[in-house]
Every structure is written in C-alpha cells, then in structure tokens.
Design a binder for these strands. Structure first.
Length: 297
DNA sequence: TCCCAGGTCCTGA
DNA sequence: TCAGGACATGGG
C-alpha cells in the first residue's frame, strides 16, 4: 500500500480488499451516495469526501493531508481483511458470501450518529432510512459546503435534537421513532462520556447499557456496537440475516436470540464481519424471499 | 388494498 | 419468559 498526500486529495495505490460499492452499499452506513461517474460522496464528521476507485487505486477527493489519520481509522485501513476472510472461509456458504462482498470493510463510524441512524432503521427500509437522516441533517445539522452542485450538512448534534420538538422531528419523516430520537438526544447529552467509553468495555456491558435507551433493542444495539464501537464479536440478526441463517445454517423456526447465539459461537470474535458478508449477500441475492415478493427491495 | 421494511415496546397470559 | 399486536411512512 502506497499513500500519496496531495494538497486537496489523497491517493492510495495497491489497496487490497477495498471496494467502494461493497463498502457503501452493504447497509452499514447511510450518508454515502453514488455519483453518476461511479464515485461516492459522503459526509464524515464535518467533511464532505468523494472517493473514486480504479482497481487497487483509490482517490480520496476534497480532503487535506492532515486528515489522513482520520481516513485510516474510518476506513479501517490498518486491518488485514485478507486474513479475516481466510479465517471465516470455513464452509461453502461463507465462501460464497465472502466472494460476493469481497471488498467490504467495517467502517469506524461516530457513536452518536450510529445510535440515531440505527434507531431510525427499526422496521424501515434502507432508502427511507437514508432519507430521514438526510432530512434531519438538513434541518438540524450545520451547513458544510456545496460539492458538485449539492449542499451538504453535518449530522445533527445531540443538543439540536434534544431541543427540537417532536413535531419538528416528525417533519423529517421519522414516524413513531421521533419521540425516541428526542429522548435519546437528551440522555446522550448527560451520558456521552459513558457512550464514548463503550468501546473500552465488554461487549455484554455495552449491549445492556445501549438497550436501556428507548428504541434500542438487541439488534440495533448490536449494530451500534459493531459499526461504531469496534465490538466485532456481535452478530446482529435482522430479517435478512434471519432468512439466510434459517435457510442455510439453522432450523426454520429458530428464534433470533438463538440464531445470534449459534453464530457468535461459530464465528467468535469475527462474528460482526461474518454477519456483514451474510447480510449483504442475502439482501442483494434476495435469499429466502418468496418469489412473489422478490421484486420488492 | 395489502404487505413489507437492517425492530422495539407494551400487554396479557 | 413469550407470543401477538401496534407503531409512521412509503413503495410495490
């Protein structure tokens, strides 16, 4: 891997196990969008970044050299995904899922943003989740810049969501999650030191703390732990993961909690990675969906 | 019109 | 403990 720091962009050559589409469309993040030229533009903290890829060369546009360490952390560049994939590749199902989503990386996202984003994900579709987050950012975030003709806003601070009215949050199409978002924001303001310390505590402690928030259950808590707190031994079970697990690994009527336990035993401290390959594979392939429903995504 | 979505909460047994 | 229904919203 060779890194070239330029004035307003960073180029990385020979970057292994990195694929823009797989990273940004595997369901872990909601603020990245594909441009017409195939590049992706997204918001990280208060920066608008654009990525383009040609083979093993990735160009990070609109970014200063001093932000390289942030990129390295966010995109998990120090992690050896080749090694992870080898360790996970123990049966034909995983082999296929890994092959399919080969360039996935688990992003290291902000805890607060991830909490709210996955609260919004409850009983919702990915395009709608993205829309609600976009609405919240436009309404309550701060203007960052105009990039390629589009205005970008930062993810709203907890202060702004705590002081917003439920009606205002409802206008962002958050639906029944609106009061939960406001409540979580108020509580986060008091306890952010606890939240930002979860990555240093045990998985079980993190899980039970997060579940004390209204609107965060087992699945959402697992996603927060995995996508923003570096807890990789968790295996979030949603409709898609349930389908593929019931189709390929466990009995049809196995409950989510048991599926999760089975998987965490099987995949150990790589459960989170395994889950992400399986989720992406199941969702893109429509695994377990009845033929009559297959057109709906 | 009905069903579903990266679920969670509440209720009643 | 556990099943069953409610919950906003929008797309198919």
């Amino acid at each position: 891997m060779e890194v070239i720091l330029e004035d307003n962009r960073i180029i990385i050559n020979n970057l292994e196990d990195f694929n823009l589409r797989h990273i940004f469309e595997c369901g872990q993040c909601f603020r990245w969008n594909r441009e017409e030229d195939g590049s992706y533009t997204g918001v990280v903290e208060n920066k608008v970044i654009n990525l383009e890829q040609a083979g093993k060369t990735v160009i990070f546009n609109n970014i200063k050299p001093e932000d390289y360490s942030m990129l390295k952390s966010y995109f998990d560049l120090d992690n050896d995904y080749g090694k992870i994939k080898n360790l996970l590749n123990t049966d034909s199902i995983m082999a296929e899922a890994i092959e399919f989503g080969h360039g996935i990386r688990i992003l290291n996202q902000d805890e607060w943003e991830t909490m709210i984003s996955f609260m919004i994900s409850a009983n919702n579709r990915i395009p709608m989740i993205k829309k609600v987050i976009e609405n919240l950012s436009t309404s309550f975030g701060e203007f960052i810049c105009n990039y390629k003709g589009k205005d970008y806003y930062s993810f709203p601070k907890a202060e702004r969501l705590a002081e917003a009215s439920v009606e205002e949050i409802l206008q962002c199409k958050a639906g029944f999650r609106a009061p939960r978002i406001k409540e979580a924001a108020a509580r986060f303001l008091e306890e952010k030191h606890l939240v930002y310390n979860i990555k240093n505590r045990s998985y079980d402690e993190g899980l039970s703390y997060l579940k004390t928030y209204k609107g965060i259950g087992d699945k959402v808590a697992s996603c927060i732990l995995l996508f923003s707190m570096k807890h990789f031994s968790t295996f979030p079970v949603d409709v898609w993961v349930r389908r593929i697990m019931q189709e390929l690994y466990v009995d049809k009527n196995t409950k989510d909690a048991s599926i999760r336990q089975f998987a965490e035993n099987k995949f150990g401290n790589l459960s989170g990675y395994a889950q992400q390959y399986l989720f992406y594979y199941a969702r893109e392939k429509g695994i377990g969906v009845k033929k009559s429903e297959k057109l709906t995504t």
